[in-house]
Amino acid sequence: MLSRFSGKVALVTGSSNGIGRAAAVLFAKDGAKVTVTGRNAERLEETRQEILKSGVPESHVLSVATDLAAEKGQDELVNSTIQKFGRLDILVNNAGAAFNDDQGRVGVDQDVSVYDKIMQINMRSVVTLTQKAKEHLVKAKGEIVNVSSIAGTAHAQPGVMYYAMSKSALDQFTRCAAIDLIQYGVRVNSVSPGGVTTGFGEAMGMPSGAFEEMMKFMESRKECIPSGAVAKPIDIANIIAFLADRKLSSYIIGQSIVADGGSTLVLGMNAHNWADLMKQS
C-alpha cells in the first residue's frame, strides 16, 4: 500500500529544529522525498538522522545548509532539489525569526534595523523562494503551505511588533498568492500556531529555559491557553501535512488554520467564570 505522499517531493525550510523538523520527518515517513534546510549544519544533520532512523532510505533525503535570507542560497536550494529529485510538489515556507532590540526597546521605539532583519527572513525570503519554486510547482500542480502565527491576527503584540507585522503580511501574501496560483492548479494555504514548544525563544536571544518557563505559565492560565496545553511541533506538522494532502483538503484555498488551543478566542473580560465571581461578592 502506497503512503499518501509517495512520488512527491517536499521542500521544508527551517527544518533544522521545531516545526520544520517535525514536518520534514512526517513527510518522509509518509513516503515523500524531502529536502531539509537551515543555517545550522549540525542541527540539520540531526534532522537528517532522525529521518533515516525512521526507516527512510538515504536517497530520499537531501540536506542543504544555506542562508535562506540570501537569494543565492535560495537558488542553491531549489536547483539542488530539482537536480536530485527531478521535481517539486510541496513547498513549506516555515523558516522564520524574531529578534530583540539591542537596547531592549519594544513597540514603536524598536530600532528599524530590527524590522529590516525580521522582514528579510519572514516575508521577503518567502516571496522570492516562492517565485523561484513556481515553475516547478506549476508543473506538478503542487502545494504551498506557509507557517504564520497568531501574532499576525487582530490582537496587538507590541512586545514583538515587527514579528507580528511580518506574519500579518504573510497572511495577506497567502491569500493573494492562492488566487494568483490556483489558475495553474497550485494551492496555497497556511497554518497559524499559537504557543509551541520549540527552540524559538533561545533563537530570539532569551536566556536558556526562559521560553519554556513562559510556556508553562501560559499553560496554567486559561486566559492564555484555554485548552491548558502548549502545542508540540508534531501538532502543527500534522496540520501542514493535511494542507499538503490534496485528497483531504482540496477545497481549501488561501486559508489559514489557527492552531492555538483556543488562545485567540479569549478576551480578558471573559477569561474568568463570572458566575463564580458573583457568588464570591
Rank of each mutant, 00 (worst) to 15 (best):
L267W: 07
V196R: 05
A231F: 08
T198K: 07
V266W: 05
T35D: 04
S148W: 03
Y163E: 01
P207S: 08
V78N: 02
N270T: 13
S227L: 13
G38S: 14
V56G: 03
R48M: 04
F85K: 02
S6Q: 13
G142S: 07
K29Y: 01
S113G: 03
L277D: 03
G194N: 10
D245F: 08
N93I: 06
S166W: 03
F99R: 11
T130A: 08
S149Q: 00
S125V: 11
M1I: 04
T81P: 13
V64E: 06
S263W: 08
R43F: 05
T37V: 12
D89S: 05
E213Q: 15
A24D: 01
A241T: 03
V9I: 11
V147F: 11
A156G: 09
A237C: 07
A41Y: 01
C224V: 02
Q110D: 00
A210G: 07
I236H: 02
Q131H: 13
A169I: 07
R21M: 14
D111V: 03
I225L: 14
D260Y: 07
Y251N: 09
L129C: 11
F200V: 13
A271C: 11
D101I: 06
D102S: 13
E42R: 11
G254E: 02
S263H: 12
C176L: 11
R175C: 08
L277V: 13
R221G: 02
Q74R: 15
F242V: 09
I51T: 00
L62G: 12
S208K: 15
K84H: 07
K132Q: 14
S6V: 03
S15E: 00
D101F: 09
A151V: 06
I240C: 07
I253Y: 09
V64T: 07
H272Y: 15
I118K: 02
G209V: 09
E212P: 00
K53I: 06
G262E: 01
A244M: 02
R87C: 12
A203M: 10
S190Q: 05
L77G: 04
Y163D: 01
D116H: 14
I150R: 05
I225G: 07
E71R: 10
A32N: 04
V36H: 01
I252Q: 03
L129E: 04
G199K: 02
L77Q: 00
P193Q: 06
F217V: 15
T47H: 09
E50R: 13
E76F: 06
D260M: 06
Q74H: 03
H60E: 09
A151K: 03
Q183L: 09
A169E: 01
G55W: 12
D30Y: 10
G107L: 04
A169T: 12
G159Q: 10
A95T: 03
V9S: 07
N270E: 05
M206C: 08
A244P: 05
L2R: 12
S166D: 02
V160S: 08
L44F: 09
I118D: 00
G55S: 12
D116I: 02
E135K: 15
S250V: 02
L170K: 03
